[in-house]
Design a protein around this nucleic acid. Sequence first.
DNA 1: ACAAATGATACTAATCAGGTATCATTAATA
DNA 2: TATTAATGATACCTGATTAGTATCATTTGT
Lengths: 132, 132
Amino acid sequence: MKLIKRDTDYAVRALCYFANQKKRVVNSDELVKRLKMPRPYMRKILQQLGRSGMLLSVKGQAGGFILSRSLDHINLSDLINLFQGPTQLSDHLLKKKPCPELKNCRLKKKLDRIENLIVSVLKSTKISSLLK
Amino acid sequence: MKLIKRDTDYAVRALCYFANQKKRVVNSDELVKRLKMPRPYMRKILQQLGRSGMLLSVKGQAGGFILSRSLDHINLSDLINLFQGPTQLSDHLLKKKPCPELKNCRLKKKLDRIENLIVSVLKSTKISSLLK
DNA sequence: ACAAATGATACTAATCAGGTATCATTAATA
DNA sequence: TATTAATGATACCTGATTAGTATCATTTGT
Ligand code: FES
Ligand code: FES
């Protein structure tokens, strides 16, 4: 089972590329060529990073994207949340319905604690620490 | 995104039920009634637990399953491995092919370290600690 | 012999991941 | 100001994975 999906993975690599280009505006074509990713998919990812505020987009000819903040301020959990939704260790369902005892289920509570531990590992991993 | 799929989740609950029944042989009908899970699905899960050696199956009339070892000796990572395959933070692919620089990619190395951390959290969580 | 259990395995349905395609909008530039 | 080269928004498609079913053979207590 994968914890990080393709889009999150690509996003990490893209952000690292931006960081290495300093404040230069980089367009999606360049990224796609350098990182060898499928163009429309990468575009979608960049748009999401833009909407989320991690990238700043420059429209029109000669446009592209720039990092809008230091990678010190973005962590793995942020990206996972953006692309994969909130990390849930277990939803603890029964036949698609929430289990009736959910409120006071000790098992669920325990699993939630473990989940918090894992999320805190992901939160403490700044993207800047992944740079070359 | 869920880290624990339905089958793993059900398996945990089933194992806990067995543990509370001590050394009694419990059949799948009883489990299904108590835990309110879909019968054929639960049967499949029990069979997998049987094959893996965590449960001991008793065939024939009046048959069923018993725990074959203490829940102290089964951890969350074991179950995740059994039902969901090995935990991989990221496969770090490019268009379905392994990225050529994979061998000496610092990003991949970093992600692997984080993965080990998470797996060690899961490994250190004994199923016995999830009992009521 | 029969009933009541598991074993093995093939099949199906629903959901999600990964990606495409299209058209509108924006802005530099010739 | 018309063209061109970029992004914005969004709908669609396809394959893989998850979740669950169905069937039949085998084992064993009564
Ligand atoms: S088993 Fe029902 S909420 Fe945990
Ligand atoms: S980016 Fe290619 S192996 Fe990491």
